[in-house]
Amino acid sequence: MKRSDLLSGLFLIGFGLFIIREASAMKYSYVHGPGPGFLPFWIGVLLVALALILATMSAFYFYSEKERKANRADWWKAIRVAGTWVAFLFMIALADKIGFILSFVIFTVFLVSAVDRRSLSTGITVALAIAFGFYLIFVYAFGLRLPVGPWGF
């Protein structure tokens, strides 16, 4: 059994049903043709049907030994990716409160020093250099309005 496909299929069945439920609240057709609910309804139906096929076929899939080895979970990789993504979201949340530049510096220091395991001084140097470059290019040269914190940057 291919568990990843089974889980994807089940998730997409649920998602397709949600689309159908929402579409059923919209008008399916008018006198002269389809309404706003027509396409979403059929998208939902097709998603459910295809996801059912995916989930069903996953049950009949047999891994080769090579695939089994290749698919073994590598938790270190997962932690690196999850850490980066969570830190990225944290930076987005922080940018709204303390400004983009400062939140970006914190994020970069974390990424370089904690995730990539470089020294703290390397992290701080890289973060300050890139943040300064961003400020120079986007704020100063392009005149973009980036989110600012209470310190005005």
Binding site: D96, F100, F104, V112, A127, F134, R145, P147
Partner: peptide, 26 residues
């Protein structure tokens, strides 16, 4: 390790500058 934060930073600036919306960034 210097390239990746740069790309992520440019991504945020790029998306935010379209509509100045944090929903877009999320």
């Amino acid at each position: 390790f210097a390239l990746y934060p740069m790309v992520l930073g440019i991504s945020i600036v790029g998306v935010y500058s379209v509509n100045y919306s944090f929903l877009d960034v999320w």
